[in-house]
Design a protein around this nucleic acid. Structure first.
Lengths: 163, 163
DNA sequence: GGAAGTGCGTTGCTAAACGCAACCTATTCA
DNA sequence: TGAATAGGTTGCGTTTAGCAACGCACTTCC
């Protein structure tokens, strides 16, 4: 069977994340959601994504609880899509990716930059340990298996052997 | 033409990142690279990815400067793949994704957890502003266009209209 | 009141990309 | 001599993305 990548047999947070947002376009759809996009036509126009693919992605994100549909018109029936709390929690992921792209791909030619309202400076995301506040250095993390036979991603998402 | 997602006309750090690591399996290949995997057979066995796909991904990651091939045997010719500095810079991206997956998909059933050697506590990544050290709250970032007609992702990567 | 426009999709078709198994090359080991 | 190892490549079938056309239920314009 020639189907696309299936990470669901792994028990790993990264694989779990990719299972939800790893499809093409999905992260850009969410990026635009953070920028205020809520409606089908807006995404279609801004991304240039195929309409059937966009429909499938929105459906999948709703199914995974990342977006929530909301009726804004009864006749004709129209809905928009809002980020849930689970979806909002993806903001650090997108910011970290944006920073890598700006820094490592664009170098000093980054097309946009973030300003942190709180302090007024250019925002450079930095990942620190919540406990001690220290940044990361290579080799300072150890992995502990806390659940030897944890459910796999597929089991967590209750996929009927692939939705 | 029915080809796969092409983000390259956008000028955006997220799109730039996805252009490099957005293909299926790529981020899991890199995850395993951070765990010490360097050789074809190790990736193939651990991920179960198709061999031709794995070969294509390694080639692409080398082309993008994320992995670097290194000869470790002349006869027979054998090479292994090491993370470059550019590749190592993806660690925050993977850690942030792992945290989202553990927290939002697995909930309290996370299969593994990180221990921060520096302080000895469970490591919870937290994204802060490098200047003021504050965490993020919704709406505290403003985007500024610093380069109105920045090169697109495709131009940055010098793709001959898609490598 | 008929025609055109809007918003949100669905349907068919074609072209890439993936999964799988088989194969290949070169070398070492039994 | 035969099998095993390492790192791929090649063919073939299936899945997915891209694209254009269509459908539907209103609303607005002339």
């Amino acid at each position: 069977m020639g189907r696309t990548a299936d990470y669901s047999h792994q028990s790993c947070g990264i694989a779990a994340t990719l299972e939800v947002v790893g499809d093409p376009w999905t992260l850009l759809i969410l990026r635009d959601a953070f920028r205020g996009v809520r409606r089908f036509e807006q995404w279609q126009e801004r991304l240039g994504v195929a309409r059937n693919v966009l429909a499938a992605r929105l459906k999948s994100l709703v199914a995974h609880g990342v977006l929530e549909p909301r009726r804004y018109s009864e006749r004709p029936p129209r809905q928009e899509y809002l980020l849930t709390a689970k979806g909002q929690a993806l903001r650090p992921v997108l910011l970290t990716m944006a920073d890598w792209g700006n820094r490592q791909v664009y170098g000093d030619q980054a097309p946009v930059r973030f300003i942190h309202d709180h302090c007024g400076h250019a925002f450079t995301p930095r990942l620190v340990c919540e406990h001690c506040g220290e940044g990361l250095i290579p080799g300072d993390l150890r992995q502990t298996q806390i659940n030897e036979d944890a459910p796999t991603v597929g089991e967590m998402l209750a996929l009927p052997d692939k939705a």
